[in-house]
């Protein structure tokens, strides 16, 4: 079920002197099972874009089409959209409110019309998927958990609906390196199981290491929309626009500037490693 954004525009406070344009005649297609990384400077329209895809606000012009249906059409079933598209905001742990972890994770399924047993299964699956011990934690108050656990529970609360599209807004901010790695692994794991992942991040490394496609926004327009390997090709442009590049890409760029033959589509650490070893061998020889 592809996501098609057709000529979408969004303006905050339209028609007032405070009018500010967030997205302008924006078109984009995201295919099923894709892993898309979205980058851009603050205020470039990233948050607006993901909120439009999640159906949290309708575009002023244009359409958002998911599965061939306009999600803002009057007769479009909202409940279906809420189950289909999950969104994890920055610091998702603030959304916890129930008296137990189990209830909180099940909250999103309350209006889903699913049977009790299905809900219970989904909740257990979601809690285990985020790496928590279901039996040990189910009855705990979500507020008494540690910071890292809270975030996992909050993410489980989004996963429980088994969304086919998962949107992540700066999901690794504030996590320690281990939590970060575990979370990114979870996203690739979900992606491998067929979930479309859309991740907004300032962290170029996280995007380069995981995303298949990279989208860069600037002033409400598409600046780059390319497979991850090619998106980071033009280092000078990205640096000029104030958009980060992955350390591996930066190193490849520098090494090639020093005359080492390294392909310019090297963006990941694992891809860079063989070249580094070769260069190291050459130096020691």
């Amino acid at each position: 079920m592809p996501i098609e954004i057709k000529h979408a525009s969004y303006t905050y406070f339209p028609g007032t002197i405070f009018e500010s344009l967030a997205l302008q005649d924006f078109s984009l297609q995201i295919d099923d099972g894709d892993y898309v990384g979205i980058m851009g400077k603050t205020g470039c329209g990233k948050s607006t874009l993901i909120q439009l895809i999640a159906g949290l606000m309708p575009p002023l012009e244009g359409q958002i089409i998911i599965d061939g249906k306009d999600i803002n059409a009057r007769d479009y079933p909202r409940e279906e959209l809420r189950r289909k598209v999950g969104i994890v905001f920055q610091y998702p742990e603030v959304q916890l409110f129930e008296t137990s972890v189990e209830k909180d994770v099940a909250f999103g399924l309350r209006h889903s019309g699913l049977s009790k047993t299905t809900i219970a299964e989904n909740v257990r699956w979601a809690i285990e998927t985020v790496g928590l011990d279901f039996e040990a934690i189910r009855a705990e108050s979500p507020f008494s958990l540690s910071g890292g656990e809270k975030r996992r529970v909050a993410i489980a609360g989004v996963l429980a609906a088994k969304p086919k599209i998962l949107i992540l807004d700066e999901p690794i901010v504030g996590l320690d390196p281990r939590g970060r790695a575990a979370f990114l692994e979870l996203t690739t794991h979900l992606n491998a199981a067929g979930v479309t992942i859309i991740m907004v991040s300032h962290n170029a490394d996280a995007i380069a290491e995981n995303a298949q496609r990279v989208i860069v926004l600037e002033d409400g327009r598409l600046l780059i929309n390319a497979p991850a390997k090619h998106a980071f090709r033009d280092v000078a442009l990205l640096q000029e626009k104030g958009i980060g590049i992955s350390p591996a890409r930066e190193m490849a760029h520098l090494l090639s500037a020093c005359g080492h033959p390294i392909p310019q589509d090297t963006i990941r650490y694992q891809e860079l490693l063989p070249f580094l070893i070769n260069i190291g061998k050459g130096a020691s020889r």
């Binding site: 809420r82 969104i87 603030v94 959304q95 999103g108 209006h111 609906a161």
Partner: peptide, 16 residues
């Protein structure tokens, strides 16, 4: 700002 974020997050989870 925080309140607006929470409202949106819960709406996306299917809250009414």
């Amino acid at each position: 700002e925080e309140t607006e974020m929470i409202r949106k997050a819960q709406t996306a989870r299917g809250a009414r």
